[in-house]
Every structure is written in C-alpha cells, then in structure tokens.
Design a protein around this nucleic acid. Structure first.
Length: 270
DNA sequence: TGCACGGCCACAACCTACGT
DNA sequence: ACGTAGGTTGTGGCCGTGCA
C-alpha cells in the first residue's frame, strides 16, 4: 500500500512557538501534535537537538533533505554576481558559475564544502539544482558585442559624430563623390559557436565581448557608390601568393601578427 | 490508562561519481 | 545532458516499552 504521509507540513515559526511552550511546561507532547500539526517524533528530535541544522533551513524551497551546499544568502549573492556580470557583457558560463560556487565555499571556512576538490568546482547536478532554485536565471546563447560598440555606440557619441560630419561637409563644400567611408571588419577563420552564458530569463538579447578575431577586411566606398578594392589582412608572419587566390581584382592581401590592421598597413592601404 | 520515549523503516531532497 | 547508484540528513508513521 502506498504511503500517504505528508512531509514538512509544519512551519519553522510553529516549531519555535511549540518549543517555547514545551520548555515552559505550558503544553504536553500529545497536544503539540494536535495544536501545531508537528509530529511528536519530529518535535522531539528538534527539542533534543538531534537535528543538526535546527529548524531554520538555509533553503526555504523544500522541507526535507539536506541543506544546499551554499546557504540561501550565498546563493542570492551568487545570483546577483551572475546578473551583474551579464549586464556588464561578461556573462558567466556554466562552468564559471560552478567554479564560483566552489570558491565561495573555499573562502568561507566555516561552511562545509562538499564539492569536488580535484575539479575545484561544484558538480553538474548542483548546477541544475541551483538553476531550478533560481527560475529567473537561464542558460542563453550570447551575441558577440565589440568593446568599441559597447563604449562608443551611445546617443551622445553618435550625435557628436554627425555634428562633426555636418560641419566638415559644410566647411569644405564636399560633394558625394569626394566622401568616402572606410571601415575594417574582423572575422574568425574557424567557425565556432560562442559559449552559452547564464543570464536573466525573458531578456531579449544577452551580449558578450568578442574575443580573438584573426582576419581583417578593410572596405571603402564613396557616398556616390564608388568602391575601392578591399585590403585583406591574415593573421600570420609571412605573406604568400596563395592567400590572394579568389580575392576581388585589385585587392591588397597583407599579413600581420595579430590579424588586425596596424599603422604601417593603413599607410600602405592609403 | 495516558503519556513520554525510542527503534525501525520508508520516504524525500540534496549531493556525489560514473557511464552513456 | 541526462540516467543511475549511492551517500547524507531530515521527516513522519507505527509500534513496543516503561512509568506514574
């Protein structure tokens, strides 16, 4: 026959009141079961201090079972850190969160650290339980956002740019065929998905700084639609004629250590 | 007889390691 | 990413024992 018992039907507050009354001799054990809905057995364990953590649980999501490795306050703090990193476009990956949980316990010697000492991080099961306890966090695919875009693309800077552009165009009486726009764009030569990071649920997009581009293309065209052949910069020490295979006519193919444009290459492009 | 107490056992939730 | 086995810690019902 199936067990119909219900666990954890009592509240910490009622346990506290029952303990107080019982200590003062105001209530009998059997009455506690009726008045406070606390099973005798459970009450006595708490009364005698047989329950290690007492009746104030670290995690209030459940009654049974052992405590979460991180006390609820530490979990809340960790959640705050995750959201803070995410909003600063440095979203933490799953493993980074697991490492962080380990480090929190390591830096608090009074807390028991049940996590794997060799791996120096919390287990995967801990991670999934943590995410379950914090339903407004979710693992999301990040979008790469460059530092320049983060720092420069704001209302003030964009406004200043167009004010300056307008002044230069007016002062020099520039016509469309004399206005050229040059820009460089970085590419990765190895297609690899960006790692997933943890962020706030239901947020439209979550960004992450772009790292490690290793090929650059410098493009230029005029306001009247006239195109200049591109400069393609590969990340390598020596140039090779094969790198030019299939490139548009008139293209310049160069190499640099970082794969980015530098002052020498820019002069060369001019 | 009512009450306090304790042993036993199944259950529950939180973890781990390991395998697929 | 998920399933499984196993450890840890706490819960709760049942039942037997001892005592006033």
């Amino acid at each position: 026959m199936a067990d119909k018992r219900v666990y954890g039907k009592w509240m910490p507050e009622t346990m506290e009141r029952a303990l107080k009354e019982y200590r003062e001799g105001k209530i009998r054990l059997n009455k506690i079961e009726v008045k406070y809905k606390i099973p005798k057995k459970t009450f006595l364990r708490h009364y005698r201090g047989e329950v290690g953590r007492g009746f104030s649980r670290n995690c209030n999501l459940s009654i049974n079972g052992r405590d979460t490795a991180l006390p609820s306050a530490a979990e809340k703090e960790l959640e705050g850190v995750i959201l803070e990193f995410e909003s600063a476009l440095m979203g933490l990956t799953r493993n980074e969160v697991r490492r962080l949980a380990f480090q929190i316990l390591e830096s608090n010697p009074h807390l028991k650290n049940p996590f794997n000492k060799d791996k120096q991080m919390a287990g995967t099961k801990w991670y999934y339980s943590f995410m379950k306890r914090h339903p407004h966090l979710s693992l999301r695919q990040s979008e790469k956002v460059s530092i320049a875009r983060v720092q420069g693309f704001n209302r003030k800077n964009v406004g200043n740019f167009f004010d300056s552009l307008e002044k230069i165009v007016d002062d020099n009486k520039l016509t469309p065929w004399r206005i050229f726009n040059i820009d460089e764009s970085g590419f990765s030569t190895v297609q690899k998905n960006s790692s997933k990071i943890i962020g706030q649920k239901r947020k439209d997009r979550i960004g992450q700084f772009a790292r490690g581009e290793n090929m650059t293309v410098v493009c230029c065209c005029s306001a009247s639609g006239q195109f200049i052949p591109p400069m393609i910069i590969f990340q390598r020490m020596r140039n090779c004629i094969d790198l030019k295979t299939g490139a548009p006519d008139g293209s310049i193919v160069e190499v640099s250590e970082s794969g980015n444009i530098n002052s020498d290459l820019f002069i060369k492009w001019l």
